[in-house]
């Protein structure tokens, strides 16, 4: 299995710099990071990839069983680390990937030196004594939303080609429609993202950790950021004056600066 091809691995930045591994969340692919990569690339060796089932990964490697649990996505991270023989990795995970990073670091702690959790949430659904911001019904609505946007007319969301590996000439169009995804795989990723309860895993974190949240984020509200911060002793919490769930897009300079400050400062 060629992991570089399978996970569409991209390596950029300073070849001899410390490694920063950027992991995208649900809904898009490694393109999510493109506005912060230039700032990181000056000092770091930046590794990007797509989870199997997202972006330009090899979708033939996808299986519902593996990608129905966050452990499957964590294995993608570890596979990439192993393939590139990465050590002392600063893992930067957006959204659900923040928790994927926690799982990967728990499994192979020797590989990871830092954890940056961008807009993390270990549990999206409200429970007694915990407020994640959503009900199970809300998550079902999202799944319906996914379905209704994959019907075909919404070109931005529907994949231009669906599982057509024997027509590589369509590859260019696929690039143009980034963030498009195979609906069945996206549905599994959505369910896994929003229905998993990873709160207990926060206790396994031992590396220096930055929790990077946005001031106004409906997906990961501030009380969730505070929860994560409190659950990881010694973690640092930085609140960006940004709106939405994707500060690497809405506030790229501030996001890159917070990451480099943390990585440089704790070195």
């Amino acid at each position: 299995m060629d992991i570089r091809h399978r996970n569409n691995v991209t390596v950029t930045g300073r070849a001899d710099g410390p490694v920063v591994l950027l992991a995208h969340g649900f809904g898009c692919d490694q393109n999510m990071w493109r506005m912060v990569v230039p700032a990181l690339a000056e000092e770091y060796r930046v590794v990007l990839f797509d989870y199997v089932g997202s972006g330009r990964s090899d979708s033939s490697a996808w299986s519902e069983q593996r990608y129905s649990s966050l452990a499957g996505y964590a294995q993608d991270v570890l596979d990439v680390c192993q393939e590139l023989d990465l050590r002392d990795v600063a893992f930067v995970g957006h959204s659900v990937s923040a928790m994927v990073g926690v799982l990967a670091a728990a499994k192979e702690p020797e590989r990871f030196s830092r954890l940056v959790m961008v807009a993390p949430s270990p549990r999206y659904i409200d429970e007694d004594g915990y407020r994640g911001g959503f009900s199970a019904e809300d998550i079902n609505e999202l799944l319906e939303s996914l379905d209704s946007n994959y019907l075909g007319w919404s070109a931005a969301m529907a994949p231009v080609i669906m599982g057509n590996p024997d027509r590589p000439e369509l590859g260019a169009e696929l690039t143009a429609s980034f963030c498009a995804a195979d609906p069945d795989k996206a549905r599994v990723f959505a369910s896994t993202t929003f229905l998993t309860d990873s709160r207990a895993d926060l206790r396994t974190v031992t590396v220096p950790t930055l929790v990077l949240e946005c001031a106004h984020d409906v997906i990961a509200p501030r009380e969730v950021g505070a929860y994560v911060h409190a659950a990881i002793p010694g973690s640092r919490l930085v609140t960006l004056n940004a709106t939405g769930h994707c500060p690497q897009l809405s506030a790229p300079e501030a996001t890159a600066q917070a990451i480099t400050a943390f990585l440089g400062g704790s070195r």
């Binding site: 969340g25 898009c28 959503f134 019904e137 609505e141 999202l142 319906e144 946007n149 939405g244 769930h245």
Partner: peptide
């Protein structure tokens, strides 16, 4: 709520 989630994960990016 469902559309809000969709907006934040797909539309806004």
């Amino acid at each position: 709520m469902g559309s809000k989630l969709y907006h934040e994960t797909h539309y806004a990016p």
